[in-house]
Design a binder for these strands. Structure first.
Length: 108
DNA sequence: ACGTTGACCTATA
DNA sequence: GTATAGGCCAACG
């Protein structure tokens, strides 16, 4: 496994409860800005990882749960987020800008 | 080996 | 303000 994916998992694992981040933010934090799709691929491989990766806390820039289908069921992602206190309506994160957790600013 | 696809983002019209 | 185009790099067929 490349260090890139490990870094992604590391960052995602550091996301606090009830907070969310975006692929682009992680990509920029890792220095691979513009290649945010790779972050998505990393999440795809996250299911194979033995360690649990809270991929449900990672959404797109619009706060839309685009990768909900990649979980067991589309409902799983919403359930997990709502369980952490995140309000989800129409597969969109409410107050996304306020719940946004930027590793560049928080983790630094 | 080549072409297509993809859990995206930025930029221009 | 939305709509469309381009770019990015790895995995799949």
């Amino acid at each position: 496994m490349s260090d890139f994916y490990q870094q992604v998992y590391e960052v995602v694992r550091q996301i606090p409860i009830g907070r969310v981040t975006s692929y682009g933010a992680i990509a920029r934090y890792l220095g691979t800005a513009g290649s945010s799709r790779m972050v998505g691929w990393a999440m795809n491989l996250a299911h194979h990882q033995s360690v649990y990766v809270p991929a449900h806390r990672v959404v797109n820039r619009n706060g839309l749960l685009t990768g909900k289908v990649h979980f067991g069921s589309p409902e799983v992602m919403r359930e997990l987020l709502e369980n952490e206190g995140v309000v989800i309506v129409n597969d969109c994160v409410i107050d996304f800008t306020r719940l946004f957790w930027d590793p560049m600013n928080e983790l630094l």
